[in-house]
Amino acid sequence: MDSSAIVEKYFTHLSAQQKAQFQELGNLYTEWNEKINVISRKDIENIYEKHILHALAIAKFQDLSGKKILDVGTGGGFPGIPLAILFPDAHFTLVDSIGKKIKVVEAVVIALGLENVEAFHQRAEKVKGKFDFVVSRAVTRMKSFLHWINQKIQSESPEDNSGVIALKGGDLEEEMAEIKRMYQEVPISEYFSEPFFETKKIVFVPF
């Protein structure tokens, strides 16, 4: 079942507009991928499971309603675009250092009518402003990543749950030991039953 039905299986309170946007998402990426390769050819057939649902694991971990989120190294728009559909009242800034990928992001955002997304062709360090959360999908080792985005996270109040939420896979013990700070690791298999998620994890580094 690689269709938007897999999203509706785990997110049962979607509006008609959100359902339509998720349905359209697969078509848009399939079309764009023929022009600009943003998703590997073998993955495009499983885009809902391996990209869209994977991105939405972050929503199972953290409610992003009303938050400001920076998606670093977004590629073609993951995890930012699926999350932006799910949280229309949150604001998303998507950045990538590869211009043609941001071109795809901008086109998808316009086609879906997403008014809560901005996309920029730039490096994370150059992004202006402060955010509640920084999200990413396996961009680089966490130590380097935290160095890039260190000045980008704000918390409005001490009880705010702000920080980095990263999608990663495999054994992370050595990588996470490098950061010398508290973090939380959650297997995505706790949220989704598909075998693809057995090795996938969410890593949260609070700020």
Rank of each mutant, 00 (worst) to 15 (best):
L70W: 05
L70E: 01
G73V: 10
T74Y: 04
G76Y: 01
G76R: 00
G77Y: 07
P79T: 11
L83P: 02
P88L: 10
I98Y: 02
K100S: 13
K101C: 11
K103V: 15
K103R: 13
A107I: 11
L112C: 09
L112E: 04
L112S: 04
L112K: 02
G113M: 09
L114Q: 06
E115R: 05
E115N: 13
N116H: 06
N116A: 12
A119W: 03
A119Q: 04
A119N: 07
A119I: 10
A119R: 01
R123V: 13
R123K: 11
E125N: 10
V127R: 00
K128R: 10
G129A: 08
F133I: 15
A138W: 00
A138M: 09
V139D: 07
V139A: 10
T140C: 13
R141H: 15
M142R: 03
S144A: 15
H147W: 04
N150C: 08
K152D: 01
K152R: 09
S155W: 12
S155G: 08
S155C: 13
E156C: 11
S157L: 02
S157F: 00
P158L: 08
P158S: 11
E159C: 12
D160V: 07
S162H: 05
V164D: 01
V164H: 03
A166W: 02
L167Y: 02
G169C: 11
D171E: 12
D171N: 12
E173K: 14
E174S: 15
E178R: 09
I179Q: 04
K180H: 14
R181Y: 05
R181D: 13
M182T: 15
E185R: 09
V186L: 06
V186T: 15
